[in-house]
Write a protein that binds this DNA or RNA. Structure first.
Length: 271
DNA sequence: ACTTCGACCTGTTGGC
DNA sequence: TGCCAACAGGTCGAAG
C-alpha cells in the first residue's frame, strides 16, 4: 500500500493528536506481524509521552524520552485516530490509548507491517542503518544518482526502488517518475547519463510532492487517519493504466515485469 | 559486491 | 454462480 506520500500523509494526520501526549495503555490483539510486536511494548510505553513523530523513508517513528516505537505499514497497514473506543475489527491488531482518551489504532490485513519497541537510541537500528537519503532532501540529486548507479546492470526502475539507494519510492511512484522523466524503465541504471539523472531526480521530487498535496494514492484500502482516501490516483499517468492510451501521445501503454513488479510505460515517450 | 527470488499474509479480481 | 490461479501499495534475507 503505502509509499512515501501515504506514510507522510499518515504522519501529518496523526502528529497533532499524539505529539506531547502521554500513552496510558497499549493493547496488542494480534502480535504476529512481519516480526512479532515487541513483547515488552505494552509494559514499557505506557506512562511515556510521544515527544516527536518522525518519518524515515516509509518508517514512522514515535519517539519518547526512553525509546522509540518503530513502525512500518507494509503493504496494507494503516493508522486511524479514534475519538471513542470503537469495537475492533478483524484486522485491528494494536491500539495505543492516550490519557486524553484518544485511540491510535493499527490495522493491517496482510500483516506485513511492524511495530517494534526500540529502547534508547534509534539511530543505529539495523532497519534504518543502511537506508539511502530522503528523496525530498537536497541529498537526492542527479549527481548522487549518477554516482551511485555506475557499473550497475540492474534496470533503472529496480535501482530507484532500492531503499539503499533512496528511500520512499515504491512501485507506483517509480512508474510515474520514470514516465515524467521520459526514461524507459528497463534501461540499465549504469548506462544513464548524469543529465538524465538530473531530470529524474527532479521528477521524483515533483511526483512525491504532488501526491503528498493530494493526500496520497488510494488504490483500494489506503485511508488517512480520519478514514478518508487520498486523491492522487486520478493524477496517475501510467500506473494502473496498462493497455490504455498514453495521456501524452495516445499510444497504448505497455506492461512488463521488472523485479517481480508490474511495470507500465509508454514505448514512444520513454526512451 | 551485486542480483534474483522465495517468503511472509489476506483479500480481490479475472478467466474458465 | 463457483472455483482457482494470479496479483496487490514492501522488503528482508538466503542463494546464486
Amino acid at each position: 500500500m503505502p509509499e512515501l506520500p501515504e506514510v507522510e500523509t499518515t504522519r501529518r494526520g496523526i502528529a497533532p493528536y499524539v505529539t506531547g501526549k502521554r500513552v496510558s495503555k497499549v493493547i496488542v490483539r494480534q502480535p504476529s506481524l512481519r516480526w512479532p510486536v515487541t513483547p515488552t511494548l505494552a509494559r514499557e510505553l505506557p506512562g511515556h509521552t510521544i515527544d516527536k513523530l518522525e518519518r524515515r523513508g516509509k518508517y514512522l517513528l514515535l519517539k519518547t524520552r526512553i525509546g522509540t516505537l518503530l513502525t512500518h505499514l507494509g503493504m496494507s497497514g494503516s493508522f486511524r485516530v479514534l475519538h471513542t473506543m470503537e469495537i475492533p475489527g478483524k484486522h485491528d491488531h494494536v491500539d495505543i490509548i492516550f490519557e486524553s482518551g484518544l485511540v491510535l489504532r493499527y490495522s493491517d490485513p496482510r500483516r506485513f507491517g511492524c511495530l517494534l519497541w526500540v529502547p534508547n537510541s534509534i539511530e543505529s537500528h539495523p532497519l534504518l542503518k543502511s537506508l539511502g537519503p530522503e528523496p525530498l532532501s537536497d541529498e537526492l540529486d542527479g549527481e548522487y544518482l549518477y554516482r551511485k548507479s555506475r557499473k550497475k546492470v540492474a534496470s533503472v526502475k529496480v535501482f530507484i526502488m532500492d531503499a539503499k539507494v533512496v528511500v520512499g519510492i515504491g512501485n507506483i511512484y517509480a512508474n510515474e517518475a520514470l514516465f515524467m522523466a521520459g526514461i524507459n524503465p528497463t534501461r540499465a541504471a549504469g548506462k544513464i547519463s548524469q543529465l538524465r539523472y538530473r531530470v529524474l531526480a527532479d521528477c521524483i521530487k515533483k511526483i512525491l510532492n504532488k501526491s503528498i498535496k493530494k493526500g496520497g494514492t488510494t488504490l483500494r484500502d489506503f485511508t488517512n487517519v480520519s478514514g478518508n482516501p487520498g486523491y492522487f490516483k486520478q493524477s496517475l499517468q501510467v500506473y494502473g493504466r496498462s493497455g490504455m492510451a498514453c495521456r501524452k501521445c495516445k499510444k497504448i501503454l505497455k506492461e512488463i515485469r521488472l523485479g517481480q513488479r508490474s511495470t507500465i510505460y509508454c514505448t514512444a515517450c520513454q526512451k
